[in-house]
Design a protein around this nucleic acid. Sequence first.
DNA 1: CAATTAACCTAACGATCGTTCGGCAGGGGA
DNA 2: TCCCCTGCCGAACGATCGTTAGGTTAATTG
Lengths: 196, 196
Amino acid sequence: MEDSARQGNTRERLLEVSAELFRERGFHATSMRDIARVAGMRPASIYHHFAGKETILQELMRGFLGELLSTAQSAAAQAGDAPGRLAAVVRAHMRLHAACATVALVTDTELRALQGPARQEILALRDRYEEIVQDILRQGMRDGVMQVTDIKIASYQLLAMGTGVVFWWRPDGRLSLEEVVEQYVLAAYRLCGVHP
Amino acid sequence: MEDSARQGNTRERLLEVSAELFRERGFHATSMRDIARVAGMRPASIYHHFAGKETILQELMRGFLGELLSTAQSAAAQAGDAPGRLAAVVRAHMRLHAACATVALVTDTELRALQGPARQEILALRDRYEEIVQDILRQGMRDGVMQVTDIKIASYQLLAMGTGVVFWWRPDGRLSLEEVVEQYVLAAYRLCGVHP
DNA sequence: CAATTAACCTAACGATCGTTCGGCAGGGGA
DNA sequence: TCCCCTGCCGAACGATCGTTAGGTTAATTG
């Protein structure tokens, strides 16, 4: 089945187009006719590749959060003290959010559009991501190299800060990606009370 | 016109109901029929109080951002060094976000739903809010009591962190509001490199 | 008391929504 | 050659959308 390449291209193209439209207008303000028009096909043809509109959103979120989770787990699993692990997670987080800025923004802003089991599944992925950060904070506190008043609040502050980058960062901006990444690593260190 | 109280009540009730529904389902997933049903009236009656659905959202955002801006300006205008002004702004920000958690969340997540001049107006209010923070950071750098690598990025980090509180804070939560407020003041100090 | 107006109603408009049905073109396998 | 399957299409379904026109009620005003 060498035509799976063509199918894969169409599927992937539909996902990209949908993500772009969801980011610009929001999930509910984007119609299947909009997606079809930009993708160069008719609305009915989309249903050959996806079961429905919400399925497209699910696939986008599952893909992004899954990748975010696996890269964060790899980063957190590498040997080192808590600050080193935190820095690795922040760098992985930032680079993936920069590489997938569109779908990252959609994932963070359209959680309300999901319903039923898919919503629970996505929320579970997000919770696991939070726990990675909180585990590092606990280790840092235990080792006496981090000073935070409340681990949960500190993790919320870290995640809100790190997620917010998709709202302003642009690849052609004033600062290079790696400069921005290192500023967020420094900010994370400061938030956690890591002594420089 | 003592019946202005009744009209004011209905208008205010419609605003509250709309904010609650916009927060739960999002602006585009909320219909005028939904709003009318929860408010105990018929869809057509809403148009006696508002020109249309988007007008309701505009009014919610204008009201919240206007109040946020005025309280922040008062906080920033009080005499004191940069850290003192920053702490005052953070406290005002947190207390207003806690008091108006619903409309605060709507304001932060439904900007895409606004179009035309109203969108520009709301964006201008948000920009003025950013500038308040950036002015304080500039003063802190000038006085040598703050250490940030980039003022714009630092302000984005601060605002993302401070805005994110609406996504997890609940009035009946584990910590009192003032405890949370002071943790965010401490976090802001750390982010800005204020020496303790 | 007459006139006005605010507040709300019923009913319906045209548009658009997500989705489905049945069919058409064409290439690969038997 | 025949068949089937993939990919796409035209057309339409029922539902729901934001909004409006016009009427009714009750309170206020002059």
